[in-house]
Design a protein around this nucleic acid. Structure first.
Lengths: 99, 99, 99, 99
DNA sequence: GAACTCATAGTCAAGC
DNA sequence: GCTTGACTATGAGTTC
């Protein structure tokens, strides 16, 4: 099976994927360990998970807001970083990013 | 918030988890890249995924079979009083159980 | 609440689901009983469960392997332009792809 | 393997379990179908699941309450179903089951 | 790009 | 009670 170019290439692909998935699984196990350790220290895992999830949402939300701001700035003619552009943005958005 | 022991500890926990999840996500992205590269080289992703999944199943199946064998071997030593155990022991040792 | 079409329909849906879940639960109980009876006859439940699980895995694995074979057979007809496909077709038919 | 009493018994056990699990799976599939049909009729599956879960909770809660009531009634000397007992229960619980 | 299927992650309950 | 296994729910992936 592997005594031809295609076979060698395929083997390489599959092995790379499997290697990466092993590492991914190892990290998942590490995460479990951290939760277990936290539990041993008296923390409630369920609540902890909720905290992590909320922070992730916050982060992605913040990213979306920044992306939206960029969009607006671009629409304004990419004037950001110039005094004039800044003034325009301030005038448009009232000094605050799209919340 | 963090100028107390509990707060410091909690912050540490959350940050460790978030760090590990970032790395995990990076690996997931790497895997995607490998599939994408394979596709660019003419491989069919669907088939590739199935191959990987199948190999994973093979591995876990082999492990389970070995675990079952261990279970049986232990049972041969302990289950002298059960119908199956007796029959198995008889079959193994050609006589009465080594009581 | 139920003297309108939507209410009647919804009631019907929920009742059908609940009926089916009751039957499902009854079967789960039956399975428990069989294990309990087996245990009473001297069998080791843990081993028994592993045997059942393993047989299930065998079945699904066989199915997946057949599905993979189908995928390959299809690929042999379609993937003439890919490295693996070309090699496979060459190997199968001893010459150029049946273009 | 099956030409002895234990083997026959074991085979029977495993087959009974597998048969029951097949039926259980069939019911699970039926339930999926009902949800799918509901979805096709415009219902939201997630909400539907929530409704079913809540009703199940209600049911088990009601059962617990009834069990608690029985416990009380027994503690009162199993006087229920007699005029005197009824009066006692009324006096204790104010005419309403433990809510 | 929208729906549908599949895989993984999280929650829950049963068994040891 | 603690760990393992089943079920649920969410998210990624695929297909139309």
């Amino acid at each position: 099976m592997t005594n031809n170019v295609a076979g060698v290439q395929l083997t390489s692909i599959v092995q790379r994927i499997e290697r990466l998935e092993e590492e991914k699984k190892a990290l998942a196990d590490d995460i479990r360990d951290v939760y277990a350790e936290a539990k041993a220290n008296g923390y409630d895992i369920k609540t902890l998970r909720k905290v992590v999830r909320l922070r992730k949402q916050d982060a992605s939300q913040r990213q979306e807001e920044e992306a939206l701001l960029d969009l607006y700035l671009n629409a304004l003619g990419m004037l950001k970083d110039t005094p004039l552009g800044e003034a325009a943005v301030t005038r448009e958005f009232g000094g605050k990013a799209a919340a």
